[in-house]
Each structure stands twice: as C-alpha cells, then as structure tokens.
C-alpha cells in the first residue's frame, strides 16, 4: 500500500524534474526570442515540482493512514482484472492493424468478457462478443464512414 501512496508523489516529483530538464534541452527558436518556447513549460514544471514536493511531505506525514480503496485495489481479483485489461489492451494495439478490426476486436472483447464475466457464462460472452463486434464494425465503417483496418 505504501508503494502506491508514496509512489504517486515520487512519480510526480520525478516527472516534473524530467520535464524541467527537458526544457533546458529544447531547441532554440530561430524566430523572435530564441527562448520563447521555453518559458511556459519551464514555469509549469516548476509549479508541478513545488506542489508535488508539498504533496510528498503531506503524504509522508500520513504514511500510516489506511486507504481503503488502495486495499481494495490490491485485494481479491481486482489486480488480476486491472492487469488483464491493460495486457489485453496492449495486445489489441499490437494486432489491430495487422489482423484487421473484426478479428482483433472479437479476440479482445471475447477474452475480456471471459475474464471479467467469468467462464461459466460463456454463452452470454460469445453472443455479446459476436454481436457487438459486428454491430460496431457495421456502425463505424458503414454508417459513419470511418476507415477501419
């Protein structure tokens, strides 16, 4: 739990430092004031850094307080569901353009339903997968004219 509670402020501090360093390495503008593109991101990353440090100290003081939602996130099958959704999403992104919309969507939605809704309800899962894949394919590509792979 502490990892998540402390992880966020630490992540934000690191992120603001990365962006702050990034602003020093931005290319200079060849038009007008060469530093003009720097000021805004630099100011905002300093702001983010300051607030994140305050946040970090606030959290350090409260490090031992319990956060029910973090506990829920880490308990039961929640971590599995979150992990599976993200992993399947990555897989979907990788195959979407190569195997085409319909096939990849059937795989993605089907797998997700089997994990979230459970194997026992396989009939519902398959029906929902097939109908929604086809309906969305038809609606987007035929009716809305979106070019899907």
């Amino acid at each position: 739990m502490k990892i998540i509670k402390m992880g966020m402020p630490v992540f934000l501090v690191v992120l603001s430092i990365v962006f702050l360093l990034g602003t020093y390495n931005l290319p200079k503008a060849k038009l007008g004031n060469p530093d003009a593109p720097l000021y805004f991101p630099m100011g905002v990353s300093v702001l983010l850094l300051v607030f994140s440090v305050i946040y970090l100290f606030q959290e350090l003081r409260r490090a031992h307080e319990d956060n029910e939602q973090i506990r829920e996130m880490l308990s039961g099958r929640t971590p599995l569901l979150i992990g599976a959704t993200i992993a399947l999403g990555i897989g979907y992104a990788l195959i979407f353009e190569t195997v085409g919309f319909l096939f990849s969507t059937i795989l993605f939605l089907g797998a997700l339903l089997f994990i979230v809704n459970g194997r026992r309800k396989w009939i519902t899962n398959i029906i929902v997968t097939i109908t929604f894949s086809f309906v969305s394919w038809y609606a987007f590509s035929e009716l809305l004219g979106v070019s899907l792979p």
Binding site: G100, F101, L102, S141, E142, G145, S147, L148, P149
Partner: peptide, 8 residues
C-alpha cells in the same frame, strides 16, 4: 485486411 468502402 478488409477494404471498407464509403458509400456515397
């Protein structure tokens, strides 16, 4: 790959 035709 499926080719999708926009129906004008």
């Amino acid at each position: 790959m499926k080719k999708i035709w926009l129906l004008a």
